[in-house]
Design a protein around this nucleic acid. Structure first.
Lengths: 222, 222
DNA sequence: AATATTTTTTAGTCTTATCTAAATTTATTT
DNA sequence: AAATAAATTTAGATAAGACTAAAAAATATT
């Protein structure tokens, strides 16, 4: 069994590793965990001793297979609990992160699978992030940034690059939610802002927003 | 916010206090928590400093109103999660305790009320234990001896431990009847006699009398 | 290549919650 | 009432995880 702290480190390293595709460095981890670099070094040594990651001083870290599978399990729990909070308890999707951070550390072999089944084996959490299945496999799916879509293309909002609270609130104000269908109507050449059409309205979003919206193209299949 | 450990101590002390109707002693707590007496003493001091229980060395402990309300909140969470596990995830009732022990410490003001609502405001957990409601009221709130009330506490006279004729006549002379509201104004340290205030007068009763009066607490707050 | 800057690690300290062993207080027997 | 036993508290240690400040290594700049 691993401590909450260990699990959090593994989870954060996993997500950074995915984003960076390179050894993850100490400062980044410290920043994501709101802690200090020296604390990260301490924990890294501990995790390395347990063979959850490989580490050479000053060279950053990489998860081992074991470390990766633990991180995936934590991620699975986090996302399933988020789904539960939104789908069953009717939280808004920007309210659930903090609670899921706690729930993800509840230890029980059977619990998470029963929860999964109860929720109907969902494939995506409320932020559109894929939920790893029992065996650690993602619902592999190619999501592209809305910024990379052409005029006339359509797709479905499936995820966010930036899940910060400010951004979630912005989307809430715009009434945009996961699984919304979106069509690119026009792209302003001057500032790359994008005119999009949702099911209800047509409006402009800035380039920065467009970058952060992950879209599943409509000609793909589920 | 209180630590998991603090919450566990409060919860255990609360249940022991209910069972014992007397100051709860160190060894009992240690046994229930599978820890050592010395650890209990340490924690007791900490909780006492935070005014969650009253404690005099070698004399056992008693929860304060604040301590009691925290314990009740933890118990509420524990029992609601147990209900969830059995009713929604189809666990058997003898499998849920360990998991609920973890879930009960998840911190969120809104979570437990939303869960309560989602479950249909159940009154009893799968073991038949009553679930305290939002305001800390039990379905089957039990009665406590007036002797165990604190200065300033109020309650309603609901029963007698000793229903002998002499005692009934005594009450008659004092004009005390069932459903009288009673407030504990003071407790004389020398002989533990209690100054009480009824709707009509304020007077002293002996410790022996106090022991025999069964009170339903009025929960002014949680 | 030498210096400056940034990143990472080390050394030492702190807090929380636990423990063992010894000392003290309370309760029980004789 | 003295002696013994039981319960409780104190003193001192330990482990996890975090911190600050200083040292060491890697990177960037001139």
């Amino acid at each position: 069994m691993y401590s909450q702290s260990e699990e959090n480190y593994l989870k954060v390293i996993f997500t950074l590793q995915k984003a960076e595709e390179a050894p993850v460095n100490t400062n980044l981890i410290a920043e994501k965990l709101s802690t200090k670099a020296s604390s990260v070094t301490d924990m890294i040594k501990k995790l390395s001793a347990k063979d959850l990651l490989s580490y050479k001083p000053y060279q950053g870290v990489k998860l081992t297979e074991t470390g990766r599978s633990i991180a995936l399990k934590v991620l699975r729990k986090h996302r399933l609990w988020e789904f539960f909070l939104v789908d069953k308890l009717h939280y808004k999707w920007d309210e659930v992160h903090e609670i899921a951070e706690q729930l993800e550390h509840v230890k029980s072999d059977s619990l998470i699978d029963k929860l999964d089944y109860f929720l109907g084996l969902p494939k995506y959490d409320p932020h559109g992030d894929p939920i790893p299945d029992k065996d650690g496999n993602f619902a592999g799916e190619e999501l592209i940034s809305l910024k990379n879509m052409e005029i006339g293309e359509r797709g479905i909002l499936k995820g966010l690059k930036d899940s910060s609270n400010v951004f979630l609130k912005y989307l809430d104000r715009k009434n945009m939610v996961i699984d919304d269908q979106i069509e690119v109507v026009d792209i302003e050449k001057f500032d790359q802002s994008v005119l999009i059409k949702t099911n209800w309205e047509t409006f402009y979003i800035s380039e920065q927003v467009a970058k952060n919206l992950l879209i599943k193209r409509m000609n793909d299949e589920l």
